[in-house]
Design a protein around this nucleic acid. Structure first.
Length: 425
RNA sequence: GUGGGUGUAGCUCAGUUGGUUAGAGCGUCAGGAUGUGGCCCUGAAGGCCGCGGGUUCGAGCCCCGUCAUCCACCCCA
């Protein structure tokens, strides 16, 4: 229990049987996303700092106070990735993308943010996400949301609420921001302290305030949709129409704005009950990302990221549990020094033949070894003593049925397989 | 960064208004006539009571600080 051995705050060691839940989650992602033409991409866990700063936005909380940034030996500023999109965009830009070419990738892995841990919020957390890059179409946005819904349904958490909204084109955004500032600035004294701060930092977020006293002021605020140009409105209308066609349940939430700067047009979020205060299990949208050294040409795409811890929490709240990892089948018990020397080689051969096998490696009493076999969850104990060695046999004891038989060493594997067979079905 | 709850055995937790050698259940290990697990019985190992300071004749218990953890805020997945 030494504090020196504990993982750092907001990080944790993941053991069985929890690991099995993670494997299930990862397998589901690798099953579903390729059905939509996505391939897995693995990017580095750290990047040059400006890869994140340029794409996420200087004014965001993530960049200003949550990044794990350090200098490497050459003095370069590096950062542990706080989210997945920026690195994926960097990788795609590095490889090159022809005009009009579309690329679809998914990724999963750890992300890092220096926040105060809470339910559903860790410093090292994990995301599974997708990006479809290179083209802009409303149908693509809708398909992306449909795929997310498919994925969540496959995980058993399709009962979440899908919220969608639009932030308009890159050209519309400053117009909206300006209108919001114009409306709220005279009302500054009436706003809650958080909103007063947001007024300077991130006007869009004002609309998302949950404080009671701010609500009347929100009601009179200009609506984002009224300020958008025709192009933005038409784009969003088509996104919604396509979602209808695909049968994806969703709700338009005009106050949904998201926290990162790079979003344009469609933004969406999926919330789920039973997670504590952090109720978003996945979120995403369409974006235009500027990479270092390429300021004039933004990469556009649509994607989402889902919090893996949160997905697992949502599943747990519904009582869903993936099958545990396969346990030990055989336990080789060796009696006496001759047999003990033979136990490990026998186990090795059995493993080669596909049996999950444990062999007692200490010179322990039979009682101790049998108890160990039981506690390891083995179905069969293979008892090997001087008598069996002399007769070239093995006593096979079924720990579930409490029956045993002496089997000739030749053909042992076939006999074991026969006994275990019903269990495999 | 701000606020609140909680820190006693490997795990889950008792521990009286401050008073001898700090307990239970589970788990681990060993034994119960020498080659047979599960249930049962017996025994053992395992604690700087998170850490540091203070009050007191005396602190697991009270006070302060600190660290860790859980939760909430902020923000986000």
């Amino acid at each position: 229990m030494s504090e020196k051995l504990e993982p750092l705050p907001g990080t944790s060691d993941i053991w069985e049987p929890e690991t099995s839940q993670w494997v299930f989650l990862e397998s589901t992602a690798r099953d579903i996303f390729p059905r939509y033409g996505y391939g897995e991409l693995r990017t580095p866990i750290f990047e040059r700092t400006d890869v994140f700063v340029r794409s996420i936005g200087t004014e965001t909380d993530v960049v200003q106070k949550e990044m794990y940034t350090f200098a490497d030996r050459g003095g370069r500023s590096l950062t542990l990735r706080p989210e997945g999109t920026a690195g994926v965009m960097r990788a795609i830009a590095n490889q090159g993308l022809a005009e009009g070419e579309e690329r679809r990738v998914f990724y999963m892995g750890p992300m890092f943010r220096g926040e105060r841990p809470a339910a559903g919020r860790r410093r090292q957390f994990h995301q599974v996400g997708v990006e479809a890059v290179g083209r802009a179409s409303a149908a693509m946005d809708a398909e992306c949301i449909a795929m997310l819904h498919h994925f969540l349904t496959e995980l058993g958490v399709g009962d979440g609420t899908i919220l969608v909204n639009t932030r308009g084109t890159a050209a519309d955004r400053p117009v909206v921001a300006e209108a919001l500032k114009t409306y709220f600035t005279p009302l500054k004294d009436q706003l809650c302290p958080d909103c007063q701060r947001r007024l300077g930092a991130n006007v869009w977020r004002l609309l998302d305030c949950k404080i009671e006293s701010c609500q009347p002021l929100m009601a009179g605020a200009p609506r984002i949709t009224d300020l958008l140009g025709e192009e933005s409105k038409a784009f969003f209308a088509q996104v919604c129409a396509t979602l209808d066609t695909l049968g994806v349940p969703y709700r338009v939430e005009p106050r949904l704005v998201r926290g990162l700067d790079y979003y344009i047009h469609t933004v969406f979020e999926v919330t789920h009950g039973g997670l504590g205060a952090q109720n978003a299990i996945a979120a995403g949208g369409r974006y235009a990302i500027t990479l270092p050294g390429n300021a004039d040409k933004a990469i556009e795409g649509v994607g989402f990221a889902a919090g893996m811890e949160r997905l697992l929490m949502a599943r747990e709240s519904l009582g869903l549990k993936a099958a545990a990892a396969a346990g030990v089948q055989l336990y080789v018990v060796g009696l006496g020094s001759r047999a003990q020397a033979a136990a490990l080689p026998l186990a090795q051969i059995l493993r080669t033949n596909g049996f999950r096998t444990l062999a007692d490696t200490g010179a322990r009493s039979m009682k101790a070894q049998m108890r160990a076999a039981d506690r390891a969850g083995a179905r069969l104990a293979l008892i090997l003593g001087d008598n069996e060695l002399d007769r070239n046999t093995v006593v096979v004891k079924d720990l579930k049925a409490s029956t045993q038989e002496e089997c000739p060493r030749a053909g042992l594997e076939a006999r074991l397989a026969a006994i275990l067979a019903p269990e495999a079905c």
